[in-house]
């Protein structure tokens, strides 16, 4: 990624694992969190982003640059978002949704949430637990009770294969 693109103002962002990234202010302020810092005059030096790691931040910046280069054309923006997310694996999506939430970037948040929801479509409970790395904390009785109440929702789901 080009650090300097000749735009008037660039910001330096720092990930929680101490990687530094330069990004045009005009792209970075897609994040409301960053925009507030800029407006508050806190963006003079390095902006530390304590909740985002370098790998995720690199992705987010690619997205910021890509989407801000597109003029106000919702169709094109949408197709860019779809393409941007199409090759992301599940772990990356989970990291990105957290980053989008922390950075307060509603358009990325919407897109990634929708993508994760799409991945969860018709998947079994077991599959989702494995994919999200979640320990089941329901007792067998509690789980059976909820399943019994909504019996029909547990029919016709994809098998527990981890694909």
């Amino acid at each position: 990624m080009a650090a300097e693109t000749g735009t008037p103002t660039t910001l330096t962002l720092k990930s929680n694992d101490d990687e530094l990234f330069s990004v045009a202010e005009s792209a970075a302020i897609l994040s409301v969190t960053i925009r507030n810092m800029v407006e508050d005059g806190c963006a003079g030096g390095v902006i530390p982003l304590d909740n985002v790691d370098g790998k995720t931040l690199a992705s987010v910046i690619t997205y910021m640059n890509g989407i801000s280069a597109i003029p106000a054309d919702e169709e094109k923006k949408k197709s860019y978002r779809d393409k941007f997310l199409s090759d992301k694996d599940f772990e990356t999506l989970a990291d990105m949704v957290l980053a989008a939430n922390y950075l307060n970037m509603s358009c990325l948040m919407d897109a990634v949430s929708a993508k994760i929801a799409q991945v969860m479509e018709k998947k079994s409970v077991g599959w989702v637990r494995r994919k999200f790395g979640i320990e089941n904390d329901y007792t067998p009785e509690e789980e059976a009770a909820v399943k019994e109440e909504h019996k029909w929702t547990f029919e016709g789901v994809e098998t527990d294969d981890d694909n």
């Binding site: 949430s113 929801a117 969860m120 479509e121 637990r129 329901y138 929702t153």
Partner: peptide
């Protein structure tokens, strides 16, 4: 990484069909 916080889960679950939403509620408390 910490588990997804409630506000993020709500964003995701908001886009699920009723059936998928109910199954999500069975994943963990």
């Amino acid at each position: 990484e910490p588990h997804l916080p409630s506000e993020v889960l709500e964003e995701i679950f908001n886009r699920l069909s009723l059936k998928d939403n109910i199954r999500a509620s069975v994943v963990c408390k």
